[in-house]
Design a protein around this nucleic acid. Structure first.
Lengths: 144, 144
DNA sequence: CTTCTATGCTTTAGTCAATCAAGTATCTAC
DNA sequence: GTAGATACTTGATTGACTAAAGCATAGAAG
């Protein structure tokens, strides 16, 4: 469903614009993932693996339980998009690595997730800079 | 997990900023919903009901299957946040209406979903306008 | 070296969102 | 009044997610 969806009641123009933007972004992400046989969560995890990651490290950045990651990785591994290696120093830990197919699949996904790219392409360089500054400033109130 | 999460590889500053913003927005929505005993999808549906809606009408705007809406409404109804009335002219159809508790609950949710509000509050009025214009322009390439 | 505790991950069980296919009831048109 | 469309529900299946319990290994304390 790509929630959040639906502008809230007494919103300013800016709030509605943010809302619409986020909604469009989420939907585009979902669609692009699906086009390449990935769920959004799978695409998201696969995208992080530009280097080997531990399970709890992934759970950490993605803000979810380690057991959730286990399941997602199991599914990715079953499709040979990812490999689970035992940590070199600590044999309890795992190093999650993208396989070549995983690399390729993610590259394809990223290629068709045109949203951010085409959003940027609507703006001049100066506007891009402006937007970056405004978004960062808007974010400055929130944690993380 | 609030996907999308994780900046893509060769991204511009603006793309990363968009990404971070969307991610923060989604997470804040999720957290606020949970604080009031709602799932994001439930909050999202509840938020639409400022007037009576039909099931397929909801499915339409939210871009999902009608049977998905059925389930969400059933859960909301079980908690008395929503009522399902039979359509006055067409007895196949349903009019979904928020109960007073539903109204109250959503108002609480909206109150604690401070993200958009506090994001806006970081900006001057002129900046708010600028951001609105830029987001709309960025969106202008995408469908819907 | 042994035990105790903490850590890193997996397993299991449960909820919810989401989709698809099939079903029921009602409406509309002929 | 029957045929077909429409509005929704039901049932089955998949995946994301959480919480609790479990297992193996690591590190520390004795």
């Amino acid at each position: 469903m790509a929630v959040p969806s639906g502008p809230v009641a007494a919103s300013t123009e800016a709030e509605v614009a943010m809302f619409d933007f986020v909604d469009a972004y989420d939907r585009a992400y979902e669609v692009a993932a699906e086009q390449h046989g990935l769920t959004p969560a799978q695409a998201c995890v696969l995208g992080r693996l530009t280097r080997p990651w531990g399970m709890s490290e992934l759970a950490g950045v993605l803000g979810c339980d380690a057991s959730n990651i286990t399941q997602i990785i199991v599914r990715l591994e079953a499709r040979d998009l990812v490999r689970r290696e035992t940590g070199p120093h600590d044999r309890r830990s795992r190093q999650i690595v993208r396989t070549p197919e995983g690399e390729a699949r993610y590259a394809e996904f990223e290629g068709s997730f045109a949203f951010a790219r085409s959003a940027v392409s609507q703006l001049s360089l100066a506007e891009q800079e402006q937007l970056t500054v405004l978004l960062r400033k808007a974010l400055s109130s929130s944690p993380r």
